[in-house]
Simulated scan of single mutants.
Amino acid sequence: MQMRTLSGHTGVEVTGLDLREPPTQETVAALNTAFSDHSVLVIRDQHLSPPQVLAAVELFGAVFHQHNTKFALPECPQIHYISNQDFFPDGRRYIPGEGWHTDHSNDTRPPKATVLHAVQLPDRGGDTQFANMQAAYDALPERIRERIAPLIAIHVYQSTHSARKLMGLSEANKERVPNAVLHPITRTHPETGRKAIYINPIRIEGILGMDHKEALPLLDDLLEHATQPRFQYRHQWKPGDLTLWDNRCLLHKANGDYDHAQTRYLYRVMLQGSVPN
């Protein structure tokens, strides 16, 4: 097994590993350390069935049950699919992951990580961009850090302020998804102790005790700051990539800049997280 960093702050590539075979304890420890240190782990050249994906993902933690079961694989419902071949009821194409966000922050215990396994990809395009929210926090002026330190954001399934619209929930899913949860805007990573900006334009409805006229510009300013190119790693997918990223300290977004006559299809699994603090 070999590892190579992918940018100065985010991402490490792993080669020479076949997750169809059980790895040694030393290998599992090295993978988890690399994930904690680099926030994105890209394991190349994997060719895994859904049960094999589950076995590989569980090397990093317990599986989190995703909110919208519309995309669950019937034969393996803990795994969902990401595809450009789904459409909204009005006929518009649904591109999963558009717009900067962190996954399922509207849960009381948002998933610590998301894993995608590339099954079928277009010839070009469809990159995933990541913004390192720890590096962005470190670069904030001290006065801004002090301002946001006590702030609590209100997270919902679909923010009324979001330009991106999500696929609707079934009535059964609505019953098990919280109406609203509260999370700090400054989040401390439970493993590294590093602080990060924790925002989500798709999910945040507002800031507790703050008028929207003040809250929304502040959130916009934080997003603009955090998504500067200097804080980004852009992942160019290759067939067989198994990519794991840390939702606790990253934003990400998918790009729909490819030929939609070609299929983009990936398996998705999430891992259980803790209450943000």
Rank of each mutant, 00 (worst) to 15 (best):
M1E: 00
M3Q: 03
M3Y: 07
M3V: 01
G8I: 00
T10N: 12
V12L: 10
E13H: 04
V14N: 06
V14L: 03
L19G: 02
T24A: 13
L31V: 04
N32S: 04
T33M: 12
A34F: 01
D37G: 07
L41E: 02
L41W: 10
L48A: 04
P51E: 10
V53P: 05
L54H: 11
V63R: 06
F64D: 08
E75M: 08
Q78M: 11
I79D: 10
Y81S: 13
N84G: 02
D86R: 15
F87E: 08
F88Y: 14
G91A: 07
Y94A: 15
G97L: 14
E98R: 15
E98P: 15
G99M: 11
W100P: 09
H104G: 12
N106I: 07
N106A: 12
P110W: 09
P111K: 09
T114V: 05
V115C: 15
V115I: 14
H117M: 13
V119M: 06
L121E: 08
D123T: 04
D123N: 08
G126W: 07
D127A: 08
T128I: 06
A131G: 09
A136N: 00
Y137C: 04
Y137Q: 00
I144T: 08
R145A: 02
R147T: 12
I148P: 00
A149Y: 05
V156K: 10
Y157P: 01
A163R: 15
R164W: 13
A172S: 13
E175T: 06
N179F: 09
V181C: 03
H183S: 03
H183D: 03
T186C: 03
K195V: 02
K195L: 11
I204D: 05
E205I: 04
G206V: 00
L208M: 13
D211L: 06
H212A: 01
H212D: 05
A215P: 00
L223N: 04
L223K: 05
H225W: 13
H225S: 01
T227R: 03
R230Q: 10
H235R: 06
L244Y: 14
N247Q: 10
R248W: 02
L250P: 10
L251M: 15
A261S: 15
T263D: 11
Y267D: 08
V269Q: 10
Q272L: 14
Q272D: 11
G273H: 09
